[in-house]
Structures are given as structure tokens and as C-alpha cells.
């Protein structure tokens, strides 16, 4: 096959034209970059410049017949028996070599194991050991419920079917402590007997951290009395102690026991009944 064969004259001509326009477009890009740097104009001009350069190269390859349709030899992998034997002999020297070699191997293996262990233990500096902060419980007996703008929640703060986000005092905005307060019709509540007194005047409070993947359970459907997590559409029954009713969540939302104080404000009478947030393997040393 000869390189002089006069094929692809048109391809070469178009390639040359594309090349010229590519440079023109590149200059336009530079002008835009130096003056106003509008993102879209830069995208157009620089993208076009690159595309035209591509056209030039591909047309060149298309139009040429140089060293195309070639066939090359291919050796099957795997060395000859002699080569393998030769390597073997050199890798395992004869005579005194054997015990010395084994000593070298043992040293090497021990060094790798030792420094490997050191390296793994260096990971310790990335974190302190997992601790009780994983459970992230925050409410104490008697804490007032505080809104996100810092005001305490009074006994008549919510109408029936209304909801708000509350925090313990001093922890407004805390991820773990975020709690959703809802007022429902006390007649409709179906809390377990041991939690019957947790909802004064129909006020119920649940952890707002989804037990599935930790997203804020931010939507309340008053008609169905469901809390909905927008991330994976888990639903929790507000009337039945936060029981999961649909979607991937398997565990109920932790409920916060409430009481209505003499001072006219809502208070927590203890912590959540379960650790809030997504579930995990619990170490024996941790709180259960």
C-alpha cells in the first residue's frame, strides 16, 4: 500500500478547512475569556474549536491509506519451558542459597506484616473510637420545647392538625435533637398503654431524624396522620407512636414524653424512648 496513492483529496481539503475554523473559534474563545467570560459563549466557542480540531484529525485518518488494514503477529502468552527454568534457577540460587533465601523471605514477610499493622493503626488518628455520641440523646426531664427562632412553646401554640419543629433549650438547630411536634385529636390517639400520658392535649412529639437513613422526616400529611420522609418515602403513623406504615423504614420514630407545665409551656418529661437516627449494630459497651 502506497502513501502516494491519491485517495482522500476531499477529506484532506475539508480537514484543512476545519483546522482553520478551529483556530478561528479558539481565538473567539480567548476573546470572550479575556473580556466578559460568559459561560455559555465560552462553551460554544471552545467546544466548537475542539470539535473542529477533532474533525480535522479524524478526516485526515479517514482520507489516508497509510498503514491501515495492517495485520500484526501475536504471540500466545506463556513463556517457553527453558525460560521458566532459567528464571527458576536464578530466583532460587543453589547451594548455600536456600536457607539464606528463606531467611530473606521471612524477614520480608515479617516487615510487610509489621508495617501493615502500623499503617492500619494509623487510621486511629482519623477518629476517636465510636462513643455514646452515636446515640445522640439530648432531652432531659423538665426541658422546655423551643422553636427554631428560640421561643418556648406554650400550651396553645398549635391548632389541631398543625405541626412545628422544636429543640431542647440551648440546642436550637441541633441535628440529633430536632423534634417534630404535632397536635392531633386526643380521641384518635392509639398510643400503647405505657405511653398514654405522653401526649397532653393531643400534643405528640417524635424525633425528626428518620430511622431509615437519617433524613429529616419533614412532611406531615394531616388527613392520614402520617409523617413522611422525603428521601425514601417512609411513612410513620403519628397516632400509633411513630410506627412505620410504609416504605423502607423498619423501626418506629422515637417518641418524646411531654407534659404541660404549670408555667403554661410544654416540657419534656424525659428523653426519647429509643436512640434517634438510623440503626446500627450496638456494641455491648454502649447504651442499649
Amino acid at each position: 500500500m502506497s502513501a502516494e496513492k491519491p485517495t482522500g483529496k476531499i477529506s484532506m481539503f475539508v480537514a484543512a478547512c476545519a483546522f482553520v475554523f478551529a483556530i478561528a473559534s479558539g481565538v473567539a474563545f480567548l476573546h470572550i475569556f479575556w473580556t466578559g467570560y460568559q459561560t455559555m459563549l465560552m462553551g460554544w466557542t471552545f467546544g466548537l474549536s475542539l470539535a473542529l480540531f477533532a474533525v480535522a484529525f479524524i478526516l485526515w485518518a479517514h482520507g489516508t491509506s497509510i498503514r491501515k488494514n495492517a495485520t500484526g503477529p501475536r504471540e500466545l502468552p506463556g513463556s517457553s519451558q527453558e525460560d521458566l527454568e532459567a528464571v527458576r534457577e536464578e530466583f532460587y540460587p543453589a547451594g548455600q542459597g536456600a536457607p539464606r533465601r528463606n531467611f530473606l523471605f521471612a524477614m520480608g514477610a515479617a516487615a510487610v506484616a509489621f508495617f501493615g499493622a502500623i499503617f492500619v493503626s494509623l487510621l486511629r488518628s482519623f477518629a476517636s473510637p465510636p462513643d455514646d455520641s452515636l446515640f445522640g440523646t439530648i432531652w432531659k426531664q423538665g426541658d422546655r420545647l423551643i422553636t427554631s427562632d428560640g421561643t418556648p412553646v406554650s400550651n396553645d401554640a398549635l391548632m389541631l392538625g398543625a405541626t412545628m419543629v422544636v429543640f431542647p433549650e440551648g440546642q436550637v438547630g441541633s441535628v440529633h435533637a430536632q423534634t417534630v411536634l404535632i397536635r392531633v385529636d386526643p380521641q384518635k390517639l392509639q398510643l400503647p398503654a405505657d405511653k398514654a400520658g405522653w401526649a397532653p392535649n393531643g400534643y405528640v412529639a417524635y424525633s425528626r431524624v428518620c430511622t431509615h437513613a437519617g433524613c429529616p422526616v419533614g412532611q406531615y400529611e394531616a388527613k392520614a396522620n402520617l409523617l413522611l420522609c422525603p428521601c425514601h418515602q417512609s411513612t410513620f403513623s403519628v397516632l400509633e407512636g411513630g410506627r412505620p406504615t410504609g416504605g423502607p423504614a423498619a423501626r418506629a420514630l422515637p417518641q418524646l414524653p411531654l407534659y404541660s407545665g404549670q408555667d403554661g409551656f410544654l416540657h419534656a418529661s424525659g428523653d426519647f424512648d429509643k436512640p434517634p437516627g438510623p440503626g446500627f449494630w450496638r456494641y455491648p459497651w454502649s447504651r442499649s
Partner: peptide
């Protein structure tokens, strides 16, 4: 055997062309 274009110059030109297409698409 292996059948195709030799690296120089045809395959190199094609591959540079492909590289520029990828860059052009991502820039656009």
C-alpha cells in the same frame, strides 16, 4: 494475529480525534 491500523500515524490521528471529541462534548 491482530488486525487494525498501525499506531503511527493513522491510529494516533484517530485517537487524538476521539480525545478531542470527548473534550469538545464535555466543554459544550
Amino acid at each position: 494475529t491482530v488486525v487494525g491500523s498501525r499506531l503511527w500515524p493513522t491510529y494516533a490521528a484517530k485517537s487524538i480525534g476521539l480525545c478531542l471529541i470527548v473534550f469538545a462534548c464535555i466543554t459544550a
